[in-house]
């Protein structure tokens, strides 16, 4: 038991140390701002589908912090949902297409960012 908690503690410390020496890259900061500009209106500051528009939505936006729900989606499906909208992946029309706003590089970065939000990297 003692061994286990020591091991766990060690992992936590190692993770903390690792994050301390791995500052968010410029690309990460930028994509967070992209999220904060476009996605936050529905997916929310908590990234869990509780944006300011939630009371007006007939379908709850995807919870990006949900490792199970997000983990079941392959990267290419997330990319498609962002680029061509919810309907293109058999989801709600309330998720609009952002392909006219974001380029493919930004959408790819967003997919990677969402993997860090859900902690469900593929």
């Amino acid at each position: 038991m003692r061994h286990q908690s020591l091991l766990l503690g060690g992992i936590v410390l190692a993770t903390l140390a690792f994050s301390a020496v791995q500052p968010a890259s410029a690309a990460d900061t930028k994509i967070e701002r992209v999220y904060g500009t476009y996605c936050v209106q529905c997916h929310g500051l908590k990234r869990n589908g509780t944006g300011v528009n939630l009371p007006a939505l007939s379908v709850r936006p995807r919870d990006h912090t949900d490792p199970k729900g997000m983990g079941s989606l392959p990267d290419d499906e997330i990319f498609k949902a962002i680029k061509t909208g919810g309907l293109s992946v058999n989801k709600s029309v309330l998720m609009p297409s952002w392909g006219g706003t974001l380029n493919d590089k930004q959408i790819t970065e967003m997919v990677h960012y969402l993997r860090t939000v859900c902690k469900c990297g593929h």
Binding site: V40, G44, L45, K46, T50, G51, V52, L54, P55
Partner: peptide, 10 residues
């Protein structure tokens, strides 16, 4: 907008 108990608020 700021975080609220049920959803973001103005």
């Amino acid at each position: 907008v700021i975080k609220g108990p049920k959803h973001d608020e103005i």
